[in-house]
């Protein structure tokens, strides 16, 4: 499948910027043709990862990047960071709500694609209209 466009967002690990990641996700997904309900799901999944990254970053702050890859019928969203505790960020998530939500809302999720910088990658396919 051909990669059409790449959008990269670089954010500090600060709670006030999670809405920026969410709005960017919504803008890209809506432009690709996802329906409104699916756009909402993608926004929540993105927000869950950002929130977790901010929690594990602690007071050291640092930053992270979100890469939105637009293919013909799928959107791949990849998170990377150089913060000290990056890696399997959901490994010791106490309530597990974030993981449940991400798994339910996205079609494919790789929780620890790399051991270092690439933290999480998730894919959503556009459902073909019958």
């Amino acid at each position: 499948m051909e990669l059409n466009d790449k959008i990269t967002l670089s954010l500090p690990c600060k709670a006030e910027y999670v809405s920026v990641a969410r709005l960017t996700a919504a803008g890209v997904a809506y432009r690709m043709g996802f329906d409104i309900d699916t756009v909402e799901d993608i926004k929540v999944a993105v927000s869950e990862v950002c929130s977790r990254l901010i929690n594990v970053s602690g007071k050291n702050n640092g930053g992270y990047e979100i890469l939105y890859e637009v293919y013909g019928s799928k959107l791949i969203i990849t998170f990377s960071s150089d913060i000290e505790r990056a890696g399997c960020i959901f490994e010791d998530d106490e309530d597990g709500l974030g993981v449940s939500i991400i798994k339910a809302f996205m079609d494919e999720v790789e929780f620890c694609p790399d051991s270092r910088e690439r933290i999480l990658s998730m894919t959503k396919y556009i459902e073909e209209k019958s």
Binding site: R22, E40, K43, V44, S47, E48, S51, D95, L97, G98, I101
Partner: peptide, 9 residues
Amino acid sequence: NYMDSTGLG
């Protein structure tokens, strides 16, 4: 209009 797991908690 919007909530995630932080609100659920």
